[in-house]
């Protein structure tokens, strides 16, 4: 059995759209140990969510895994039958989605929707499932849980609905919780509450979490490890400390520069990353970030950079880190 809970190796995944093949994931590898909290950051379309969904065998149409393997808890997800995948979903791996307003079915009560997953994956009867649902609502900090069980989603606020989503996700005590931008649709005070709740629950239950977000503030407060994705590739991976205080990839540096700082003066401008995200239908030949990179070199436009290990827990894909290449091409800036 592998030492990793999640072991994704060289995953390539494409969407076959009428306009052509969109290479959504390009050689993505992620290893994660039991109990770890991993943050995946990147802009929209960088492949964060698809990576997480593929882990559950939920690649949206018309996506196909081209190559690579996904192992979860020692089992090969990429070779599982639909039935095996179903047994794993909601049971060993759960997910919370971005928008709690639309992620719950409007025509069923909260109780029904929590009990559904308990009845599906455990041998509990209705009565026991209801008790467990109550327990879960208490756990996620919902007041008057008896009343809530009989209420419909539209009768609850956004923050409460997200708590219900978390309750559903935790119902079968999963080994891994995927949180796909769990706070994006919520207002700031509720965001903080939900993050705090997730942190508490992680300590109580001891599950691993993959936190998908484009909010660096969220990963800073939650995650031990961070993977930065750009155009379907992990461009930098490291501990939270390394990523925040010793970023190596130009894209990571750009992301960190664009965060507003509390001690900034009133007229200090935020520094955006210039340019537009990559057109995934026609990805550039070399490093996908090269066209937007301030330190772009000739080789960056020609060839994909290999990973460079910064230290045991930190690596990045950038030609600037490849010493030999850097030395030989010094002065040969492309732009």
């Amino acid at each position: 059995m592998s030492e990793y809970l999640v072991d994704i190796r060289n995953l390539r995944l494409s969407f076959f759209t009428p306009a052509g093949e969109v290479k959504a994931l390009n050689d993505v590898s992620i290893q994660m140990k039991q109990g770890e909290v991993l943050g995946i950051v990147g802009e929209s379309g960088s492949g964060k969510s698809v990576t997480a969904y593929s882990l559950m065998g939920l690649v949206p149409e018309p996506g196909r895994i081209i190559s690579g393997t996904i192992d979860f808890n020692g089992h090969r997800v990429t070779e599982m039958t639909e039935k095996q995948l179903r047994e794993m979903r909601g049971n060993e791996i759960s997910i919370i989605f971005q928008d709690p307003m639309t992620s719950l079915n409007p025509v069923y009560t909260i109780g029904n929707q929590i009990e559904e997953v308990i009845l599906l994956h455990t041998t509990k009867d209705r009565k026991a499932a209801r008790e467990r649902a109550l327990e879960l609502l208490n756990l996620v900090g919902i007041n008057e849980p008896h009343k809530r069980l009989r209420q419909y989603p539209h009768e609850l606020s956004g923050g409460m609905r997200q708590r219900v989503m978390i309750a559903i996700a935790l119902a079968c005590e999963p080994k891994l919780l995927i949180a796909d931008e769990p706070t994006t649709a919520l207002d700031v005070t509720i965001q903080a509450q939900i993050l705090e709740l997730m942190n508490d629950l992680r300590k109580k239950i001891g599950m691993s979490i993959i936190m998908i977000t484009h909010d660096l503030g969220v990963v800073a407060s939650m995650c031990e490890k961070i993977a930065v994705m750009y155009a379907g590739k992990i461009v930098e991976y490291g501990t939270a400390e390394e990523i925040f205080y010793n970023p190596q990839h130009e894209y990571t540096k750009g992301l960190l520069m664009s965060i507003p700082k509390l001690n900034a003066t009133e007229h200090e401008k935020l520094i955006p990353i210039e340019g537009t995200p990559v057109d995934m239908l026609m990805p550039p030949q070399g490093c996908p970030f090269a066209p937007r990179c301030n330190s772009c070199m000739k080789i960056c436009l020609r060839e994909m950079p290999p990973y460079t290990d910064i230290n045991a827990d930190h690596y990045s894909a950038c030609w600037l880190l490849q010493k030999e290449a850097y030395e030989s091409l010094k002065g040969g800036v492309a732009q």
């Binding site: 559950m56 939920l58 179903r86 047994e87 794993m88 979903r89 909601g90 049971n91 759960s94 997910i95 989605f97 928008d99 639309t102 992620s103 719950l104 079915n105 409007p106 559904e116 997953v117 599906l120 994956h121 989503m165 559903i168």
Partner: peptide, 14 residues
């Protein structure tokens, strides 16, 4: 295409 259908799938429903 609604989000709750995705939730249903993620719960492990057939």
């Amino acid at each position: 295409n609604q989000d709750y259908m995705r939730t249903a799938k993620a719960k492990g429903l057939s």
